[in-house]
Design a protein around this nucleic acid. Structure first.
Lengths: 84, 84
DNA sequence: GTGCATTTGTGCGTATGTATA
DNA sequence: ATATACATACGCACAAATGCA
């Protein structure tokens, strides 16, 4: 899943992996993506790497982060106003 | 009690210290261990360090965490005198 | 019911040290 | 030298679940 030896930076790989899960519908709009700690567990990377990956997704407009709650899949027409 | 300068990570030292207290019967099964904030006070570490120590104990199966309530000593056998 | 206090969950930012490419 | 990556550690703020008055 994640190639620790390849030329592509880990945080890019993690970001792409999450993007793929979003694209596949596994992570639907307005739903939270795994927390930083969960990403650390799932992908076997350091927290800094997970954070960089999320930051990348944020810059791509794929996710929205809410402090104290988590990071959510961006809705095409709506904000992060779900998850109850 | 906790060596802030030694080679052993603080969260490991804290986890071991709590495990010892469990083993000594000071923290009996089904009873709560000190809260994260209390551990911060008692051991003079950051909350993140206390959380990591608890996470370690959770992975060892020594404790169980309940959101909004606290972390409890696991009830599964393994008391100080639980020969069964 | 409503509000408060407690406790855990999550994220932000930063820092040091080590190691590799 | 710079970028990447891991591990550890600190402090802070906000959010959510729980329990109690």
């Amino acid at each position: 899943m994640i190639d620790h030896e390849g030329p592509t930076p880990l945080y890019v790989q993690v970001a792409d992996a999450i993007a793929a899960r979003i694209d596949a519908g596994e992570l639907p709009p307005n739903r939270p993506i795994p927390s930083e700690n969960q990403l650390v567990q799932e992908y076997g990377v350091a927290r800094g790497t997970a954070r960089k990956a999320i930051q990348l997704l944020r810059e791509r407009g794929l996710v929205i982060t809410v402090v104290g709650r988590g990071t959510y899949v961006a809705a095409t027409n709506d904000g992060p106003t779900a998850t109850r």
